[in-house]
């Protein structure tokens, strides 16, 4: 049968930063071809096709929370595969190889993670799941 693609509306202007991305304008309608968990979605808009940040899109119909997993306050263990320095107040700075707990996997690719007493957003593309169960203390 025909493949029905999900439609989303662009909520803010976005200028592409590579040839694999497309530029979007507020109010544009796009169809989603693929959703990467790292927060980049492959979409088509008119005749253009390319990657765009999921956070610049909202679903045309239906509640947006429906496809997002609930937070898991117990945390899931992941290891950082790349260092990242916080650029905003609500982000965490972490070095490569640090073990952290993922609390909330947000569709925009900026997951909420916990390291000791600190909690903040971190790029999911720099995280690798350890597969270990968290030790209960």
């Amino acid at each position: 049968g025909p493949i029905i693609l999900e439609s989303y509306r662009v909520i803010a202007d976005y200028s592409h930063t590579s040839k694999y991305e497309i530029t979007l304008h507020i109010g544009d309608l796009v169809e989603i071809v693929e959703k990467s968990p790292n927060g980049w979605w492959f979409c088509q808009c008119d005749t253009k096709r390319g990657w765009v940040p999921a956070s610049y899109l909202e679903p045309l119909d239906g509640p947006e929370e429906s496809e997002e997993a609930d937070p898991n306050y117990a945390g899931e263990l992941y290891i950082t595969t790349k260092a990242y320095k916080a650029a905003q107040d609500d982000e965490l700075t972490l070095e490569t190889g640090e073990t952290i707990e993922v609390i909330h996997k947000l569709l925009d690719g900026w997951w909420v993670v916990r390291k000791g007493e600190e909690t903040g957003h971190f790029p999911s593309m720099f995280l690798y799941r350890t597969g270990e169960k968290k030790e209960m203390v």
């Binding site: 694999y20 790292n38 990657w51 940040p53 999921a54 956070s55 610049y56 690719g109 790029p123 593309m125």
Partner: peptide, 22 residues
């Protein structure tokens, strides 16, 4: 075929979206 997604983190949500979440 689809190219792999960009290897840099996507931009954070625009201000409007963050207000909605808050």
């Amino acid at each position: 075929s689809i190219k792999l997604p960009p290897q840099n983190p996507p931009p954070r949500p625009p201000a409007e979206m963050r207000r909605k979440r808050a």
